[in-house]
Computed example of a mutant assay.
Amino acid sequence: MIKDTSLNFDNIPIELMSLLETIEMDTDAGSLSFSPDFNWEQFMELAKHHRLYPQLFSKIKDLNSSIPPEVYKSLQQLYQRNTLHMLHLTGEMNRVSQLFYHHQVKTIFLKGPILGKELYGDISMRTSGDLDVLVPLQNIETVDSLLTKEGYVKDDYFSTVLNDWKWRHHHVTYFHPQKQIKLEIHWRLSPGPGIEPSFTDLWNRKRQSSISTVPIYMLGKEDLFMFLISHGARHGWSRLRWLADIHRLVLQGQDWNRLYSILRKYEMLHLTGQALLLSSNLFHTPLNQEMKDCAGKQEAVRLANKTIFYFERLVNLHTEPLPPEVSTYHQSYLYSMKSFKQKIIFILSFLHPYPEDAETLPLPKSLHYLYFPLRPALWFWRKAKKQAVL
Rank of each mutant, 00 (worst) to 15 (best):
D255S: 11
L224I: 13
R264E: 07
W381C: 06
M218E: 12
G232Y: 07
V153W: 02
F283D: 05
T360M: 13
L52H: 04
K61L: 10
W237N: 08
K117H: 14
R95I: 10
Q76V: 04
P373F: 00
H176C: 08
L287V: 13
H352K: 07
V214F: 01
S280D: 11
Y371I: 12
F372I: 15
S349N: 08
D255P: 13
L361S: 03
E92W: 11
I14G: 03
Q252D: 10
Q80T: 10
F309P: 06
A358E: 03
D293W: 06
R51D: 12
A300Y: 01
E92T: 06
H318M: 10
L110P: 03
H330D: 15
I216H: 00
T272W: 05
M218Q: 07
R207H: 08
E41D: 08
M25Q: 14
H352G: 12
P54T: 01
F346E: 15
Q208Y: 04
I262E: 14
Q104C: 13
W187M: 03
Y174P: 14
D132E: 13
Q104W: 03
A233P: 05
S18M: 01
E222R: 01
D26Y: 11
I108N: 09
F199N: 11
H171W: 00
H368Q: 09
I345C: 05
D26I: 00
I211W: 05
V389S: 11
T272R: 00
Q98N: 06
P364N: 03
W187N: 09
Y329F: 08
V214N: 08
I262D: 12
E267Q: 09
Y120C: 09
V96L: 15
L276H: 10
I347C: 10
S209Q: 05
L89G: 15
L390V: 15
Y333E: 04
V143W: 02
S212H: 00
F158Y: 11
M291I: 02
Q98V: 14
S210I: 08
N305L: 00
A377F: 13
F43T: 08
K292C: 05
T173V: 10
Y53F: 12
T90M: 05
A304G: 13
G236T: 06
T142L: 11
F43S: 03
N8C: 09
I123P: 08
L224F: 07
D144N: 11
F227D: 12
I114A: 09
L251K: 06
H170N: 15
A377Q: 04
D4R: 01
P324G: 05
M25K: 06
L269Y: 05
M44P: 04
S74C: 05
G121H: 14
Q55W: 03
M226F: 04
R126L: 05
F9E: 10
Y266K: 01
Q98C: 07
L134D: 07
H352C: 14
Y157L: 07
H103A: 06
E290V: 02
L370G: 13
P197E: 15
M44E: 14
S31I: 01
V214K: 01
H103I: 04
L249W: 01
T160H: 13
D155K: 13
V214I: 12
Y72E: 11
L134E: 09
K386I: 15
S198G: 15
Q208D: 06
E141N: 14
S261N: 11
D26L: 02
D37W: 01
T148C: 14
